[in-house]
């Protein structure tokens, strides 16, 4: 392995982590915006979509170039292949941050915001899952993701609970239907974000140990 190859691989990991930090920041801010009914912050999150895509393409291209130039094997191959899949998850997380932000913007324009209740709890739990999956990837350490399956099951359970709750509220107060219908969409985003955390955990486990595990 040449010094150039080694430093190229290290830089790719740093860039992938930077992308992850950026994308998770978008999600965190969109959940904060939702909790505080802060439409300005939601707007700020939406503004970051173009930069997210730009960073994603740059990292993806550097990975393609590394694969073509060095044809890595063993742990180097696992690192680049796992990272390539993980950055798709990061991009998706950022995009869902954007989607949540966009939903908040729409709500404030047409319906106003109602008490999000348990949705915030789900959002915080999902965010913690994603942050732990990110830490595992960044530190190449599977310890923070050992109980990811259990945590995802809890998210799935909460998703159904929140869904039932929102439907009940819709039935009770028809005027809130436009708002609550969008809460259902956010509920669905959060459930899928839990899957993104599991995908990152699966790929990080493969990267670190070579084992293919199925979390979801």
């Amino acid at each position: 392995m040449t010094e150039k190859e080694r430093s190229d691989l290290s830089q790719i990991h740093i860039d992938a982590c930077d992308l992850g930090t950026y994308a998770i920041g978008m999600l965190r801010d969109s959940i904060d915006a939702f909790e505080r009914a802060d439409t300005q912050q939601a707007h700020d999150v939406c503004e970051r979509k173009v930069e997210l895509k730009k960073r994603f393409i740059a990292v993806e291209e550097s990975m393609f170039r590394h694969l073509a130039l060095y044809q890595p094997v063993a742990r180097d191959m696992r690192e680049i292949v796992a990272s390539l899949r993980i950055i798709y998850n990061f991009e998706r997380i950022g995009r869902m941050g954007y989607d949540i932000g966009d939903t908040i913007k729409t709500l404030s324009q047409c319906c106003g915001l109602a008490d999000p209740e348990k949705l915030i709890i789900v959002g915080r739990k999902v965010l913690a899952m994603i942050e732990d999956a990110f830490d595992a990837f960044r530190d190449r350490d599977v310890a923070p993701i050992r109980n990811m399956r259990k945590r995802d099951s809890e998210i799935d359970r909460l998703y159904c609970e929140v869904m039932r709750d929102l439907i009940r509220r819709m039935e009770q107060k028809r005027d809130d239907v436009p708002i609550l219908a969008r809460y259902i969409i956010i509920d669905r985003y959060l459930e899928r974000l839990g899957d993104q955390a599991c995908n990152i955990a699966e790929m990080t486990t493969y990267m670190v140990t070579g084992e293919r595990v199925e979390i979801i």
């Binding site: 392995m1 040449t2 190859e5 890595p72 094997v73 063993a74 742990r75």
Partner: peptide, 9 residues
């Protein structure tokens, strides 16, 4: 040892 060899380390 195998890993170190095939990855050029």
């Amino acid at each position: 040892l195998t890993e170190n060899y095939i990855t050029g380390r």
